[in-house]
């Protein structure tokens, strides 16, 4: 069996890095030949996850964001983690349109968008310690399967 191809990066929780994170992940997963639609979905998921770490996880506090991406066959696994304030009620925050920061004009759609753009999604969070999001997404393009069996 082929070993997984993986990458990881740690970067400052600054909004300037939102574009950097989604472009880096997109470049890494490009080897699976995703469609433009799949690539947009992946970039959107990264953007939502990283933005949440910055706004909600750390807020005014400085901190780092830890991102890992693995390619396993025709699937990608993505982990985005912060060591910020954590989430108390996971069921509540995952509801569409829920936001704890309406004064920042947040739409409360981040979790809903992330869940619908991936195949598997899990959140682990400890109040005062931080939040870890795990995603799995299969790249469905036929080329990617042949590409990887070679």
């Amino acid at each position: 069996m082929k070993t997984a191809n993986s990458m990881s990066m740690t970067f400052s929780a600054l909004s300037e890095n939102e574009a950097f994170a989604r472009v880096a992940v997109a470049a890494f997963v490009a080897q699976l030949n995703p469609t433009l639609e799949e690539l947009t979905e992946i970039k959107t998921v990264v953007s939502e996850a990283v933005t949440n770490c910055i706004i909600h996880g750390y807020g005014e506090i400085e901190g780092d964001i830890y991102l890992q991406c693995k390619i396993l066959g025709d699937s990608i696994e993505l982990v985005v983690e912060d060591h910020g304030i954590g989430i108390d009620d996971l069921d509540l925050v995952r509801q569409p349109l829920y936001t704890s920061r309406p004064e920042l004009e947040r739409s409360g759609m981040g979790f809903t968008i992330m869940e619908s753009f991936v195949d598997e999604f899990a959140v682990e969070s400890v109040v005062g310690k931080g939040t870890k999001l795990r995603f799995k997404k299969r790249i469905r393009t036929p080329q990617s399967a042949t590409h990887h069996e070679v």
Binding site: K43, E48, T51, E105, S107, G108, M109, G110, I113
Partner: peptide, 13 residues
């Protein structure tokens, strides 16, 4: 060329 839920928030605002 790219938009996420933060964009939805600005537009709704």
């Amino acid at each position: 060329t790219f938009m996420d839920s933060s964009g939805l928030g600005v537009i709704l605002g």
